[in-house]
């Protein structure tokens, strides 16, 4: 008993030390999403090219990425080459949410940098963003073929994030058949 008492502070210190050490490497922007395994919210928004109304029924009925972007968003340029590659190699469809942007600027941006999106929805008011718990571009959601949100990635999806996070997540979903 006295030995336990003697070591208690040391044990306490170690436990706290490990927790705080881990805390150093957590990304404080990476908030847990409450929407995991929930269906995508309903929406009726305009397409960025020709303003025709797009809704949930127009989304792909296979697994796809939902990428939140904006022409003002510098990190979006960092992930752009990866998105372009995924679309050119037909690896997975990507739907864009043009988040709180101006249409002209968005079209310029797509023209300059290339367009990896099956289509892009304009969320000028950020209303769909709120329903998705978005707080800024870029963010990427992985949607399964049943239309459920399965994974949410905050910040850039570059080649490394793609390889280390998305590929395993997608393989796992394929295995379970969704």
């Amino acid at each position: 008993m006295s030995r336990l008492k003697f070591f208690a502070p040391v044990i306490g210190f170690l436990v706290l030390g490990v927790l705080l050490w881990r805390g150093l490497y957590l990304n404080s922007r990476d908030l847990p999403s409450v929407l995991i395994n929930k269906p995508l919210p309903e929406f009726q928004l305009e397409d960025v090219y020709d303003n025709h109304l797009v809704g949930k029924q127009d989304l792909p009925d296979e697994m796809f990425l939902l990428n939140v972007w904006g022409s003002y968003c510098l990190p979006c340029l960092v992930e752009h080459p990866t998105l372009i590659r995924l679309s050119e190699e037909n690896i997975i469809p990507i739907v864009g949410i043009n988040y709180k942007d101006e249409q002209d600027a968005a079209l310029d941006w797509l023209d300059t940098n290339g367009d990896p999106f099956s289509f892009s929805i304009m969320d000028v008011q950020g209303r769909l963003g709120i329903d998705l718990g978005v707080y800024g571009a870029p963010e990427t959601f992985l949607i399964d073929k049943n239309g459920l949100i399965r994974y949410r990635h905050v910040s850039v999806i570059d080649e490394q994030a793609w390889k280390e996070i998305f590929v395993p997540a997608i393989e796992a979903l394929k295995l379970e058949g969704s």
Partner: peptide, 17 residues
């Protein structure tokens, strides 16, 4: 977005929304 402010004090786009 700006994690240490409330909605009142934040200039962030999402706070505005």
């Amino acid at each position: 977005m700006c994690q240490n402010t409330n909605l009142t004090g934040s200039t962030g786009g999402v706070a505005e929304d």
